[in-house]
Amino acid sequence: MLGSVPHWLSVMVIGALPISELRGAIPVAMGIYGMGPFEAYFLSVLGNIIPVVPLLLFLEPVSGYLRRYHIFDVFFTWLFSRTRRNHTENFEKYGLLALTLFVAVPLPVTGAWTGCAAAFVFGIKFKQALLAIAAGVMIAGVIVTILTMTGMGLADLISGV
């Protein structure tokens, strides 16, 4: 994938991407690059946390700017109302723990990127959101590392194998 890039950097880049995040980075690090679990975990978690700071800082001004355009206003209205509808009860009941657990579950549409969007939608302050998301990323990293080490993929886990 990133053939001329050093393996450690490739793992961090894969971990930073919104679709793969560390769910993709750890298996690549261990399975393709032959990294040990601690190195794979560290690089993947670090890569996954790097975009969190700019996302938390710039989601509000960027979305505000983009909302001037009808198509983006429609998209953000849909996204925010969907997020509030699906997650308000958990956030009201569990607070920051809900955000941490949401990020910690290593499934599609959960993770640091979506956690940042949820923190923005629910008005969670920067420092609290950063700590909750970082904790969730670290927990998810442990889960994915263990699953990768045991050779059990998330699809196997979900299907009950």
Rank of each mutant, 00 (worst) to 15 (best):
P37R: 04
A117R: 03
A29F: 07
K127E: 11
L66H: 12
Y41I: 15
I32F: 07
G24L: 06
G47E: 07
N48S: 06
L79N: 05
V105H: 02
R67D: 12
F122L: 02
E92L: 09
I49W: 11
K93D: 04
A40W: 08
I14P: 02
G24R: 06
N90F: 07
W113F: 08
A134E: 09
V13N: 01
I139V: 10
A29Y: 08
T88S: 13
G64Q: 07
P54F: 12
L57T: 10
P18C: 13
V74T: 12
F76L: 03
A25P: 11
G111E: 02
F75I: 15
G15I: 01
F72M: 05
F72G: 01
M35N: 05
A132Y: 03
H87Y: 15
A29H: 08
P106A: 13
I71H: 04
S63Y: 11
G115Y: 01
G136S: 15
P18S: 06
P106V: 11
S63M: 14
K125S: 11
R68M: 04
I133D: 12
E60W: 06
G115L: 05
H70G: 12
G34A: 08
P51V: 14
I133M: 13
R23P: 02
V53S: 09
E89W: 03
V121M: 01
L55E: 13
A117D: 02
I14D: 03
N86L: 13
G36S: 08
Y41H: 09
E39G: 09
L79S: 14
Y41W: 15
A118R: 00
A134Q: 09
R23I: 10
F75E: 10
L56T: 04
R85S: 10
I133V: 13
L131N: 02
V11H: 04
F42W: 09
P37A: 10
F76K: 00
G64I: 02
M138W: 01
I139R: 09
E21N: 06
V45R: 00
V103L: 00
S20W: 12
G136E: 12
F80T: 07
E92A: 09
L56H: 02
A29C: 13
P51I: 10
V137A: 11
S81Q: 14
N90G: 09
A135P: 00
V62L: 14
A112W: 02
N90A: 14
P18F: 14
G115V: 02
V13R: 00
A132L: 08
V62Q: 03
E89N: 12
P18Y: 14
A98S: 15
E92N: 10
G115P: 02
V74A: 12
L46G: 15
S44P: 15
F72V: 07
S44E: 11
T77R: 10
V74E: 10
F38M: 12
F42E: 03
M35Y: 07
I19Y: 11
F75Y: 15
F102M: 03
Q128L: 05
V53K: 01
L96K: 05
